[in-house]
């Protein structure tokens, strides 16, 4: 078939397109990702029951705020990146801000404590559980987001994959926070920040194969 015949064929009986489809699909996937992560975390690990005390409640809120900020900023980028050419003229600066903020808070918290406490503040009781749980819980959100983003035909696969991993990691951290009883800012910075970063790298590495269209 010659190219002009192809053009003729493609423009016959043209259907109007739904311009809001991508926004709705990615938005729907994000909602499913959050609900899915919460369900997996609640059923698998259970929810902490001590958040009636002011100290525990404050840290629960701090963890949720960190995760929500990461998800919020990263999903704005992801929405753009998922379309062809969405990577243009878009520095990823704001995606680093929540991480910089939590690292500064952690440093301030360490600075105001005697150095003999540092080990305990950073490692907490369950650093290994956190290190393993957040990436595992992120699998379902990542799969749902990949499904949605692929439909929008992204053209920079590595970057789009990194942001897909970042949103999935943030979602997973949000869910894990409901279980986690390690209440210190250095712990959040090291293990929440670190595992979300790990999910971001995994997304960038896996994406060229998963997101191809």
């Amino acid at each position: 078939m010659k190219t002009d015949e192809l053009v003729t064929a493609l423009s016959r009986h043209l259907e109007p397109v739904d311009r809001g489809l991508i926004r709705r699909t990615v938005g729907f996937a994000l909602a499913v990702a959050i609900v899915g992560a919460l369900c997996v975390a609640a059923l698998w690990l259970g929810v902490r029951t001590d958040f009636v005390t002011a100290h525990a409640a404050a840290f629960l809120i701090a963890k949720l705020a960190f995760a929500v900020t990461v998800i919020g900023v990263a999903s704005v980028y992801l929405m753009r990146l998922s379309r062809p050419g969405g990577e243009l003229g878009m520095p990823s600066f704001w995606a680093f801000v929540p991480f910089a903020a939590i690292i500064l808070l952690a440093a301030a918290s360490l600075g105001s404590a005697p150095s003999s406490h540092w080990n305990r503040m950073i490692l907490g009781d369950e650093w290994l559980e956190c290190l393993l749980s957040i990436p595992v819980i992120a699998i379902v959100p990542f799969a749902v987001l990949v499904w949605a983003v692929r439909k929008a035909a992204p053209t920079n696969l590595v970057r789009t994959g990194a942001f897909t991993g970042l949103v999935a990691g943030g979602t997973s951290a949000l869910a894990y926070a409901l279980h986690c009883t390690d209440d210190s800012l250095p712990f959040i910075a090291a293990w929440y920040g670190g595992t979300i970063l790990l999910c971001t790298i995994a997304g960038a590495v896996l994406a060229p194969r998963l997101l191809r269209w």
């Binding site: 493609l10 397109v17 739904d18 311009r19 489809l21 991508i22 379309r83 062809p84 929008a152 035909a153």
Partner: peptide
């Protein structure tokens, strides 16, 4: 043609 819905 297939992806024209993705143009914002």
């Amino acid at each position: 043609h297939i992806q024209r819905h993705s143009y914002d």
